[in-house]
């Protein structure tokens, strides 16, 4: 992984980079730009993290800035609260989605509420990085999609990148935010590649803004994180069926970008929400409700959801039956009452 910084005068060389590299670069640049940024978590130091997102950072910034902590997630987040109270900007890593659960009390009872409880006197600018989702052949507790737990908690931002460039930009924006951000990293996209330059990593997008990844006129696929490539592939495949599908990448689940989503749905008149976490009580339920409330008279069909089943995340040998794929997405598109037109 390249960590070298090119001379300022050199033109930015865009070459294939992985999402993992972009995330690492974001942490590197945040540490370099702001002395109050501290990275802490399990194995983030010498090892560079189990996914190598913090590779080499402790060597460059020292163990006081990039710290291997004891193995205790509530302690990691709880001490990060105290560090933030003293003026630091901690970035904590939870090693896997399901291993973040011990920190839930600190997250809900303190991280999300301290600004409010102190009438704005004590904001907590903490970024909580969590690798999430399946599709990597992980054994039990290594593939959960836990976003619904977080987005139901007022006071948190919930952000998830789906592209290499966004991985960098959204992580920088999250660390710069004066609010706590749950930053969900789709681990099956860690090794996805795109032409991207670490030397000119592009702008930092605002949190809370969705983006149209593919313009289309027949229906809108609304998705985020690990399901974006699935939706883009489905949109390509859908051309053969005569569908011109628009794809919206939410990027932030909280704050939610009603404007971009509704603009799209009002144009297309049909919407499918796609995510791999369980459907019941999931993000898709909220999104479908919001679209229905705001765009009812523009809809030619009910808003549909394509989601993981309401089962504990299945084992590696069966997970492909659980994860929404292109066929399941297109089956949903087919059910959007086209005959009514």
């Amino acid at each position: 992984m390249s960590t070298a910084t090119a001379p300022a005068s050199a033109p930015a060389a865009r070459k294939p980079a992985t999402m993992a590299q972009a995330l690492r670069q974001a942490l590197h640049d945040a540490l370099a730009d702001d002395a109050s940024v501290h990275v802490l978590g399990e194995d983030v130091g010498t090892l560079g993290g189990v996914f190598r997102i913090t590779d080499g950072l402790t060597k460059e910034f020292g163990p006081d800035r990039v710290t291997d902590t004891p193995l205790a997630e509530a302690g990691i987040l709880g001490t990060a609260v105290g560090m933030a109270m003293y003026g630091l900007r901690p970035v904590v890593e939870m090693q896997f989605d399901a291993f973040a659960y011990p920190a839930i009390e600190q997250l809900i009872s303190h991280v999300a509420r301290m600004r409010n409880r102190t009438r704005g006197a004590m904001p907590l600018p903490i970024t909580i990085r969590i690798p999430y989702g399946g599709g990597i052949g992980g054994v039990e507790h290594h593939s959960d999609s836990s976003e619904a737990y977080y987005l139901h908690t007022p006071g948190l931002h919930v952000v998830t990148p789906a592209t290499v460039a966004d991985a960098y930009g959204l992580l920088r924006a999250s660390i710069a935010s004066d609010d706590p951000v749950v930053f969900l990293e789709p681990k099956r996209l860690y090794w996805s590649k795109a032409d991207w330059s670490a030397d000119a990593p592009q702008g930092v997008p605002p949190l809370g803004r969705a983006v149209v990844r593919r313009a289309g006129r027949s229906a809108t696929l609304i998705t985020y994180g690990p399901s974006l490539p699935v939706c883009l592939e489905a949109a390509e495949a859908g051309r053969q069926e005569g569908w011109d599908l628009e794809v919206v990448d939410l990027r932030s689940l909280v704050p939610f970008d009603d404007e971009t989503v509704c603009d799209s749905v009002r144009r297309t008149g049909r919407a499918v929400v796609v995510h791999e976490s369980s459907g019941f009580g999931g993000a898709g339920a909220e999104i479908a409700a919001r679209i229905t409330e705001r765009c009812f008279h523009h809809l030619a069909a009910p808003v549909l959801r394509v989601a993981g089943f309401d089962i504990p995340y299945p084992p590696p040998m069966l997970e492909r039956y659980h994860l929404p794929g292109v066929d399941r997405v297109l089956d949903a598109v087919a059910r959007l009452q086209w005959e009514a037109n």
Binding site: M83, E105, Q106, H110, M114
Partner: peptide
């Protein structure tokens, strides 16, 4: 003075983190 803390013992890691940050500074 940190806020009066109701969830039991959850203020203790905050104290540790603040003390740690002060020591680093």
């Amino acid at each position: 003075v940190a806020p009066l803390c109701t969830p039991l013992a959850t203020q203790l890691p905050h104290a540790v983190g603040l003390a740690h940050a002060a020591r680093l500074a």
